[in-house]
Design a protein around this nucleic acid. Structure first.
Lengths: 183, 183
DNA sequence: GTCTATATGGAGATAGAC
DNA sequence: GTCTATCTCCATATAGAC
């Protein structure tokens, strides 16, 4: 593995790190494992990314595709968001869990907080108006995060086995309820 | 520290471990730190508790005082629960966070799942009736967990700074909404 | 850019004298 | 029951030859 161009090695490390962090989390993943999985060695990992933590922060990023939310009618925003969130693929779920489990580390915690703000709160707030738009967006984000907590962190087997349509309808109605300003 | 009775040493280790796990989490707390804080040594920690993990599981336990919930009128259950949960003291909060952060470890994850079931879901289900009592209790537990997530895990500064009464009223109404059977 | 070898500093757990 | 000394294993990160 000597003649490999730099960009390839860097990318191989990036991909190996991303996969291992998602599967095992920050603490249990070692620089040696990443190097082995990338067909490289520990020194290269550090040389390319400065430290294990920086590699983690570079690979563990979550974004959301706004469009389904921006395009949805206001009165179906709750259902739409829950549908989006339940449909999140395994990769993004791994990133979320890695951030949560690793958030003992201050830098990782900061990333988790920013992600909560950018992925959940901000897209909602953009669709709301009125004096308490901000607090309503934050409360709704809490409710959505609660579902993620139950499904992925605590792993409530009953909810995991519940029909998706039911969950979207019932939980979505709840989110809708916080989003709607008091009459 | 030679003449100390066994029960004292054991208890000192128990207390030191409990405090350190709550403050620093599982991964960052070492057996050596626990021993030092207890005025003892690493060998005694293992001798008394078999392993670091078993000491963690023995010290990191959460329970809830049911009475305020059992005594509350059904139509104020939501508010009552949110009031209870927001008032949780720093010690219990530390235990919760240690369980969440440590839940990469299978045994710790099991403890977190059990705690979710026993502390949130079960007390609610006991107050509900009807065919979908179970699912309503689980959805309500999700909503409550969402608040814990926002306040303690993601640490939404705006929500943390929000007046307790407002939070109890608004978020409690939401919980109440899931708890109430569809008309 | 790459990789071998190593520096440096821990960790959890155990053996065995007191 | 207690503690000293140590075993064994592993980590992140770096130095320096190619």
């Amino acid at each position: 593995m000597q003649g490999k161009p730099a960009t390839s090695t860097r990318q191989a490390i990036h991909e190996a790190g991303s996969a291992l962090f998602r599967q095992q989390g920050y603490a249990k993943t070692t620089v040696r494992q990443i190097a082995a999985a990338a067909g490289s060695d520990p020194a290269l990992v550090i040389r390319h990314f400065k430290s294990k933590e920086l590699l983690f922060l570079e690979t563990m990023q979550l974004t959301i595709d706004d469009e389904p939310l921006l395009g949805a009618p206001l009165e179906h925003l709750g259902e739409r968001l829950i549908d989006l969130v339940i449909g999140i693929d395994g990769g993004a779920r791994g990133v979320f869990l890695a951030l949560v489990h690793g958030s003992n580390e201050p830098e990782i915690h900061k990333r988790l907080t920013d992600t909560h703000e950018n992925v959940l709160i901000e897209p909602l707030r953009r669709r709301l108006s009125g004096p308490d738009a901000d607090i309503r967006a934050r409360l709704a984000a809490s409710v959505v995060a609660g579902l993620l907590y139950s499904l992925w962190i605590a792993r409530d087997e009953t909810l995991l086995a519940t029909d998706r349509t039911t969950l979207v309808a019932r939980y979505g109605a709840l989110v809708q309820h916080v989003l709607t300003p008091a009459a």
